[in-house]
């Protein structure tokens, strides 16, 4: 697989990290320790994280700090998870969100 991660950065060091397996819309993917859900998806070439509920325009990374809610996805069945700040955990089931989201079992 093509490596989309920064390996040579003038200021920051990025360690390789442990492999964290997860799935995106059913497809198995691999992230690294330290990834957020969205950063792992980007490293796997996934740029569209969801679609706007009204206009159906694609949504991706925007603020990347948990403010703008452009990156909301369905994670382990829970809607509206801000994937840009949510740490990636092994076995996470990540899905594209296309509407306002549905309540999970409370």
């Amino acid at each position: 697989m093509e490596n989309r991660r920064i390996t040579d950065h003038p200021i920051l060091d990025f360690s390789e990290g442990e492999v964290i397996p997860f799935t995106f819309d059913g497809k198995p993917m691999e992230g690294r320790s330290g990834d957020t859900i969205a950063s792992a998806l980007h490293a796997n070439g996934v740029k569209v994280l969801g679609y706007h509920f009204k206009t159906k325009r694609p949504r991706g990374f925007y603020c990347a700090i948990g403010n703008c809610s452009s990156c909301l996805m369905v994670v382990n069945g829970q809607s509206n998870v801000r994937t840009c700040t949510e740490p990636l955990l092994p076995g996470m089931k990540v899905e594209t969100q296309i509407d306002r989201g549905v309540p999970d079992d409370v």
Partner: peptide, 8 residues
């Protein structure tokens, strides 16, 4: 009034 609450 959306999820970002006018931040943008």
């Amino acid at each position: 009034m959306g999820p970002c609450q006018a931040r943008t």
